[in-house]
Design a binder for these strands. Structure first.
Length: 567
RNA sequence: UGUCCCGUGGUGUAAUUGGCAACACGUCUGAUUCUGGAUCAGAAGAGUUCAGGUUCGAGACCUGACGGGACAACCA
């Protein structure tokens, strides 16, 4: 019996990723004195997206869970592409997710001196040389994945000359592109990265941290693995495409290490989401071409975009948890992300009334000028969130979708002769409506109410099938509501064979509604405040919102079985 | 034509390291509900790419095919 309970508990335990299994094995084996140090190494050349969140959760999460530390290290080896603007946003986004690197904010540029000395050392050992050939020649000599490369004529230059030339490169005596430093590895390797990779190039633009101190900068491959080594990183977690770089990193570390410590690199699959893409380059293009309003456009998969859309850090972490880490290149369904945010917001967000497409209802037998404050529960999932009063009077707005001249099968809302409850108030019956002769649009609906049916009272036993949200016409606050849909119509825009992903953009990804009516309690809502507009979805106050002019972003719709029925 | 990685319901992941495939999302029923939400109960859906082999026994191991991905930036 006990065994059964134990077994059940075992099954409830979330499974451990292959990466964590490796980590646990290493820890148990006493490697690195049983310590774990990881790092998150972004390049400051763009904003973080949800794919980075997956890496952040792993890097910080593993360290946290196993009593270690995670460093933040900016991989800033290319001054022409990088900018401090990005550094600030990256730090903000990591903190927003709930992770902290304390005082361990490092930069690859911190190690330029060490790296330079290491390069000299390699030259002295005859393991690196200055190549005077132009880029296109070097690249053609590299061969192809199926054909071996050709050795450079400068490959066997004397060490002294190499040192002299490398020194002059760094002094700025040569033009960009005229010389590079290459590691002497193996031009016949089946692994392209081992074919005498370029490890230093001349760049004369100033660096955001080191200014104009250097005229040569290490390539990523020459900086990344060594930076991990300098920091004492034990587990270097990265995405699948770096698998083929690993032998090169190992080659460098072999020539650098003084004992048996070396970082262990483990690769996992990157995060892909349906109907969007993660390429920083393409996201930048969308921003620059004005296809979206900025990096934080709520349709963007960036963390700042998701934040503005109304996503919570918890929901993102939960999502990352659900998709897991494997070695299979996968594409994740957005509906899982949407599930994660609904699940989170269902518990924490207060319910309110907001009418997106207002239709006026006049309750003909309700006293003119009378106002009743009806009591509504803020969140049925959490009693502690209390109740609020909402004004009710003779004229209210309901959703246009909630009225039909001729009811459809299984339509439980308002139509001539039908009864519905106005949530928290009374049951009303539709007696008639006014139609605009020329447009055919319904302009007003006339109803009567049953005074015995007020919510909370128990005079009437009357039951109705439908319950509508509403806003008192006299007390309503105007709002703008931005409805978002998927950015692309194609499930996998990055993977499609289409030559221009721009043609795959969803033209209806943004719909702006004005003249929406929301309940008066929302008048004081502040940017990033989150609500459930009852029966509609979750909404978040936008940065553009002002007390006089409210703006809401729709985070995600509520599940809508009626809409599904009508498909 | 090369090297490396990978191949489990529609999607994403599991399977205590060899013991007759589990979970989540999605889909579909039904119950319930003053949110057509949430909740609850249930259903359908893979025999693990294929073919051999090892074994009493294979999704796990071996071999080979097939399929997918990565790699040829003075990017990271």
């Amino acid at each position: 019996m006990n065994d059964e309970i134990l077994k059940e508990k075992e099954e409830l335990k979330p499974s451990i990723s292959f990466i964590e299994q490796f980590i646990i094995e290493d820890l148990k084996a006493g490697k690195n004195e049983g310590k774990i140090i990881t790092r998150f190494p972004p390049e400051p050349n763009g904003y973080l997206h949800i794919g980075h969140a997956k890496a952040i959760c792993l890097d910080f999460g593993m360290a946290q869970k196993h009593g270690g530390k995670c460093n933040l290290r900016f991989d800033d080896t290319n001054p022409v592409k990088e900018d401090v603007e990005y550094i600030d946003s990256i730090k903000e986004d990591i903190h927003w997710l709930g992770f902290d690197w304390e005082d361990r904010e490092y930069y690859a540029s911190d190690y330029f001196g060490n790296l330079y000395n290491f390069a000299i050392e390699l030259i002295q050992k005859g393991l690196a040389y200055v190549d005077d050939q132009p880029a296109d020649l070097i690249s053609s000599q590299k061969g192809t994945p199926s054909q071996p490369g050709i050795e450079s004529p400068f490959r066997d230059r004397m060490a002294d000359l190499n040192i002299e030339l490398f020194g002059r490169m760094n002094k700025g005596e040569f033009e960009e592109g005229s010389h590079v430093l290459r590691a002497k590895v193996d031009m016949n390797s089946p692994n392209m990265h081992m074919r005498d990779p370029i490890i230093y190039r001349i760049i004369k633009s100033p660096h955001h941290r080191t200014g104009s101190k250097w005229n040569v900068y290490p390539m990523y491959d020459f900086a990344h693995g060594q930076s991990d080594y300098f920091e004492g990183v034990t587990h270097s977690l990265c995405t699948l495409e770096f698998e083929v770089h690993r032998p090169l990193y190992d080659w460098f570390i072999d020539h650098l290490k003084t004992d048996d410590y070396r970082p262990r690199q483990i690769e996992f699959n990157r995060l892909n989401l349906t109907y969007t893409m993660m390429s920083k380059r393409k996201l930048l293009e969308l921003v620059q071409e004005g296809k979206v309003s900025g990096w934080d456009d709520p349709r963007m998969p960036t963390l700042c975009g998701l934040r503005r859309r109304g996503y919570t850090p918890e929901s993102i972490k939960r999502f990352v948890d659900l998709i897991g880490y494997t070695k299979v290149e996968a594409i994740n369904d957005v509906s899982l992300l949407e599930h994660a945010i609904r699940e989170d917001l269902n518990i924490r967000s207060p319910r309110v009334f907001g009418v997106l497409n207002p239709l006026k209802v006049i309750i003909t037998n309700y006293e003119e000028g009378k106002v009743e404050n009806v009591e509504l529960i803020n969140n049925p999932e959490d009693e502690k969130m209390g109740k609020r009063l909402v004004p009710f009077c003779r004229e209210v707005y309901i959703e246009q979708d909630d009225f039909l001249e001729i009811p459809l099968h299984k339509f439980f809302r308002l139509a001539p002769g039908m009864e519905v409850r106005l949530k928290g108030a009374y049951i009303i019956k539709c007696e008639g409506f006014k139609k605009n002769e020329s447009t055919g649009a319904v302009e007003e609906v006339y109803c009567t109410y049953d005074p015995d049916t007020r919510s909370g009272g128990n005079i009437s036993e009357k039951k109705v099938k439908g319950t509508l949200h509403w806003v008192s016409a006299r007390h309503a606050v105007d709002a703008e509501v931005r409805l978002y849909d998927r950015l692309f119509n194609h499930e996998d825009p990055a993977g499609s064979k289409c030559d221009d992903y721009r043609t795959l953009l969803n033209p209806d990804s943004l719909k702006v509604l004005t003249g929406c009516k929301v309940e008066p309690s929302l008048g004081s809502a502040k940017p990033l405040d989150k609500f459930q507009f009852q029966r509609l979805g979750y909404f978040c106050v936008d940065y553009d919102s002002k007390p006089a002019k409210l703006v809401f972003n729709r985070t995600v719709q509520l599940k809508d079985t009626w809409a599904k029925l009508n498909k």
